[in-house]
Design a protein around this nucleic acid. Sequence first.
DNA 1: CCCTATTGACCGACCATCAGTCAATGAAAA
DNA 2: TTTTCATTGACTGATGGTCGGTCAATAGGG
Lengths: 198, 198
Amino acid sequence: MAIIVDKVQKRKDIALSCIELFTQSGINDLTISQVAKTAGVGKGTIYEYFQNKEDIVFEILNVLMLQHNENKAKKLSQVSSTKEKLKIFFDFFHNESDVELRQIYKEFISISLGSPNANMVVFQTKCFQTYHAWVEEIIQEGIQKNEILPQATKLVKGLFALNEGMFIHSVSTTAIDDLEKEINDYIDALFELLEVKK
Amino acid sequence: MAIIVDKVQKRKDIALSCIELFTQSGINDLTISQVAKTAGVGKGTIYEYFQNKEDIVFEILNVLMLQHNENKAKKLSQVSSTKEKLKIFFDFFHNESDVELRQIYKEFISISLGSPNANMVVFQTKCFQTYHAWVEEIIQEGIQKNEILPQATKLVKGLFALNEGMFIHSVSTTAIDDLEKEINDYIDALFELLEVKK
DNA sequence: CCCTATTGACCGACCATCAGTCAATGAAAA
DNA sequence: TTTTCATTGACTGATGGTCGGTCAATAGGG
């Protein structure tokens, strides 16, 4: 027989080798040839591992997201107050260390709105549900510890959508200059209403 | 001298004649040639009035948005309660009658995230600020009429972002099957906390 | 009241680019 | 030596965008 390569791993390898390229230029300004050259493979090889250009962004996002989630779990376990946890949870959208991820995420939203694809929908649905469950857990904990009122359940559920919306506004308008402040102020305002007065 | 056409008007005319095409197919599945044929002009003429394909979507959005805002103002003047006003305000994202507009809006977000352009940023910034001012007005009125607590100002400000986020989720995941319910439930939950108890 | 010069709108053949294909090649194992 | 799979880059078809040429309307001079 001939060589058998780990298709899954090589897909990741190619994607990883192009992160810088994609964060610097944006998918529309890149050609498959450029990507292939950067990855050090022939153009045809790219199509052996990816459906198209968009699919590469998708893979990069998958890899970065996984890393991000592990980091997040660690960071979350280091604080105890519910408010702090939520602020850390949503720092994804402004965190200094996630600039690259956000760039890819932005690109990804653009793609999934413009050229929908079954795999992407599944991925996003899973992400969405995971994050919701995560936030839900944080709130439930806060309620049990008597930090916040039970009504929080309903309200905080929308926080993820709110953050995403603000993120998009911050990216596509000049109306938001400090997203971090905007988001944290909102959480503070929410807690003024939801915190159990002692 | 030669014929002088109203460039602004003709730009609108061409855009309008293609609304159906763009709502049915999505920009990536359309070619300039198709658009030109549909509009009944030559391909070169398209480039006389638009920078590129994306610019056509932009013009369509402009026209539809203007119509929409006028309707909205009318509808808003017909209800008096703050909660009702907010629900009507945000029905843009699920309203039966705005299906076309949403299709174009979705496409537009995709474009403005993927291929930013100065005119679009200006437009979105203006929209964003207009809507914020509008919401702000509704809340202030509610506070003055003693329907809701003053804290509402800070909280409701994020509602627009929240709606946009939910809209994007509803479009790109299978996790939200009834956006209208989701949004209205959120507003109800918010009002449970913000309504002045009598 | 013609006739012609001028101007701006309009157009589609043409060009360059690029996504995606495929036949040929290489290389490892059997 | 044969089999099998990975790799490749030349090739193709499609399409976005350009540009030189054509047409139609008007102004104004004779």
